[in-house]
Amino acid sequence: MNPWYSVLISLFIVIGLVLIALIGVGSIGLNSLFGVYIPYVAFAVFIIGFIWRVVEWARAPVPFKIPTTGGQGKSLPWMKHEKLDSPFTTGQVIVRMLLEVFLFRSLFRNVKGELRGGPRLTFASSKWLWLFGILFHYSFLTIVLRHLRFFTEPVPQWVQLISSLDGFFEILVPTFFLTDAAFLLAATLLFLRRVVIPQVRYISLPNDYFPLLLILGIGISGILMRQVFHVDLEKVKELAIGLAAFSPTVPKELGSVFYVHLFLVSVLAAYIPWSKIMHAAGVFMSPTRNMANNNRAVRHINPWNYPVKVHTYEEYEDDFRAKMKEVGLPVDKE
């Protein structure tokens, strides 16, 4: 699919979603649809879909132990074993996984191959994707956690802590959260990377652009609420707590921007289970990462291992007995 077409179509869909919320709430006044029913449905789809997908993966067996080894395996006692890259025990596997999940260690390895005249290749470490990725994921995580302050009363200490650390640099009033900036920046960079790097542009599909644009839409609408439209946070909290307690009340005078924000989040939640964002769960189940390189020491069982047709020694000897005897090879049957 033409890349510009893919970007445009994703953009139009996101704009369409914004308009739906604006018209739905602003003109038709479907506040409870957008404030209650859609979020509930979306959240249910998210939970059920997420579990569904994970169960679907979990049901497929792991027939072989196929870790990708990234360093010296455990061998002779005096040989230095790379415990993280070639884990031998479950504990070592867990550490490898934690570093993958929290630090994107494999992505950190990234090197860029460059073609020069001759022809000649050179390789240089390239950490941009890693950097954008880390920035994106951690600001995303912080923002999600910070939202818990709307759903809880009293707000737990650690949620307050996140907010206060984050807003430490009080640039504007009201507090402009540092992560908001980081988040918009990272999502933008990830998006630009996709459009600018020719190879990445070539492999990208509308379903690569869409989630990024949707997330950008969420971020922008969130910041607009905070910095420009000054949505009444007390009212937001009233709605959020009501939703969490399954007795929702829809406060009046919550601006349309809020509903745009909520609607986009709902769409994202419902979209996640059916999209590549499931990598968040999938990474934990990846057999090249979550298995130990102890293949020869601990036998792995394949649940569907079945007998196959082999060529037995007896058949082999039958084929070659005379010749074997001629050259003095011992035979089992004279």
């Binding site: 993966w57 494999s106 994707l129 990445v200 599909l205 690569d208 499931m278 999938g282 990474v283």
Partner: peptide, 11 residues
């Protein structure tokens, strides 16, 4: 899993 989780990051 490999059918489902690629994000086409290009790494």
């Amino acid at each position: 899993l490999f059918m489902d989780i690629c994000v086409r990051c290009g790494a």
